[in-house]
Nucleic acid binder design. Structure first.
Lengths: 201, 201
DNA sequence: GAGTTTTCTGAACTTAAATTCAACAATTTG
DNA sequence: CAAATTGTTGAATTTAAGTTCAGAAAACTC
């Protein structure tokens, strides 16, 4: 057994794995299997599968956003910060769990208000994150913006999102490195900075 | 009754409407209802719902692409052509059937090879379409590209795709006009052309 | 460590969708 | 227009889920 708070964390993590594997039409039993419990155990903690899935998607999204915030908080230089933020916004492989989660949600958002709100909020926060970086770069005279910061930030997030979909769909020539380079190319044009990309960890 | 070829066209159209309404987890009965027949009638023409859905998605995608090709074929000037192509690549409302279809597929592509291939092919063809426009503009001295045409074309399609998702998700401030303007802003930077956007039809 | 509470299981039940098919209706053919 | 072919229905069947719940098992309490 497990106490409720711990079990819920388990179930959310299992739901995320099951979602990444089976998509948004994931079955209660598939989540149960991923968690190593029976479906009844899940229904003891949640009124239904939908409740758990919303939780799992919300948590996955928060993690995606917060992980990046934490990494870049440790980087002082705006140029470095911009490069790393872009690098972390693109999935390295088609199996990337967090981005698969987000891609599944994109289609759901058309019909499901909760997911639409969650995705919209994520998009806006990412835009804010890029705006901060851009304005920091301007203030330190590293960036000379060719467009207003909101425009650049919106386009950077949009490019990330779109290349995430391409990589998840296993585009044969558009891999992680290529996608990052394409986004960086736009960022170079928009910031007037050469954004030198050292070999990535 | 109806002869098979006509009925199939009906069913594909009904499936597209049902897909746009209910998403990729659409039910056989929902498609049947949209078509005004019973589910058995569908199964007479197709071995299963999946077969019809693939057809419907493929046809929707082809239409999305071909409609744009046809419109722009009638426009001689590269600047005009670029502006119109961008305008036609973004959904005007969250209800846009074709783009809703495409958004649903994005999530499916992670698990469904057919959809992954279809989307990849659509992306590549759109990239090709933009490359043609860009190179035409260069040859007529209207565009002075800041990046190589492939990079610009890939980024333009990526931006279109991403803003499609935002609009389908009913972003409160990012509407059709804003999205088109954001993409045009990138295009201006990349082509060195002011791309004057007259009031859209 | 006996009793209580919490967590979880497995079996029974319910619901909904897909699938099959015999019979019927419309259309085509000769 | 009779016969054959094609298209369609509705009812029966199968399949696959979700849901409920009595009771077992684990954890906690005193």
């Amino acid at each position: 057994m497990a106490k409720t708070s711990e079990r819920k964390a388990d179930l959310i993590s299992a739901a995320q794995r099951a979602l990444a594997e089976h998509g948004s039409a994931v079955r209660l039993n598939q989540v149960a299997e991923a968690a190593g419990v029976t479906s009844s155990a899940i229904l003891y903690h949640y009124t239904g599968i939908e409740e758990l899935l919303v939780e799992a998607n919300r948590a996955g999204m928060e993690r995606f956003y917060n992980d990046r915030l934490n990494v870049i908080a440790a980087i002082a230089d705006p140029t470095e910060r911009l490069i790393h933020t872009i690098s972390l916004g693109v999935p390295r492989t088609p199996e990337d769990e967090e981005v698969r989660l987000l891609c599944s949600l994109g289609g759901e958002a058309a019909r499901n208000t909760i997911y639409a709100v969650l995705l919209t909020s994520l998009y806006d926060r990412q835009v804010g994150m890029y705006q901060n970086i851009l304005e920091l770069g301007v203030s330190q005279d590293e960036f000379h913006l060719a467009q207003d910061p909101l425009t650049i930030a919106r386009n950077l997030v949009a490019l990330e999102d779109a290349y995430g979909y391409r990589i998840i769909a296993k585009h044969p020539t558009l891999d992680y490195q290529t996608a990052v380079e394409l986004i960086l190319d736009y960022a170079r044009l928009a910031t007037g900075n050469t954004l030198p990309q050292q070999t990535r960890n």
